[in-house]
């Protein structure tokens, strides 16, 4: 492991030209990525809830509704649809990250409750509509 120790040095170089190029290129790539993903956003039509990777149910965004998510007879999360947006309002986990997350309405946006493995996702209506026509 002595090879690792050879890399220990207290004399560090300042930020050089190469560092600045690295940072600038990376910033440009990430900004482009961010802009591209923002442009692609379109309003979703329905909301799908999955638990443990399996479909729990789906609801249209147009109708206000309160959906309790019940796993093994216990209500773990509550998802509320209001004004065309889906929001997680209750979760029985300690971190409450999904509850803090803002309401979602754009296609493919998701709210994830990691401890309960609950995923709330917005889907576009078009594919669904085509499916029903095809049937």
């Amino acid at each position: 492991m002595s090879s690792m120790e050879n890399h220990v040095t207290t004399k560090i170089r300042g930020t050089g030209r190469r560092d600045l190029i690295f940072i600038a290129v990376l910033a440009a790539v990430l900004a482009a990525f961010l802009v591209l993903s923002a442009v692609k956003k379109e309003a979703g039509v329905s909301v799908v809830v999955t638990v443990d990777g399996e479909r729990y149910g789906s609801w249209p965004l147009s109708k206000d509704e309160e959906v309790p998510v019940t796993i093994d007879g216990k209500t773990t999360n509550v998802m509320v649809i209001r004004d065309g947006m889906a929001d997680m309002t209750e979760a029985d986990c300690p971190d409450q990250l999904c509850v803090h997350q803002k309401a979602i309405s754009k296609n493919n946006e998701t709210i994830v409750c990691l401890p309960n493995r609950v995923v709330v996702q917005i889907t576009g209506g078009e594919e669904g509509a085509y499916d029903s026509i095809a049937k």
Binding site: F33, L34, L36, S37, G53, N108, T110, V112, R117, V119
Partner: peptide, 23 residues
């Protein structure tokens, strides 16, 4: 890890924002 745990790969939707935040 999040994608593996919830078995839903759509959460990679947030990747651009997370990459920028990490930067």
């Amino acid at each position: 890890v999040a994608a593996l745990v919830v078995e839903n790969y759509n959460i990679f939707y947030y990747l651009p924002v997370l990459l920028a935040a990490g930067f």
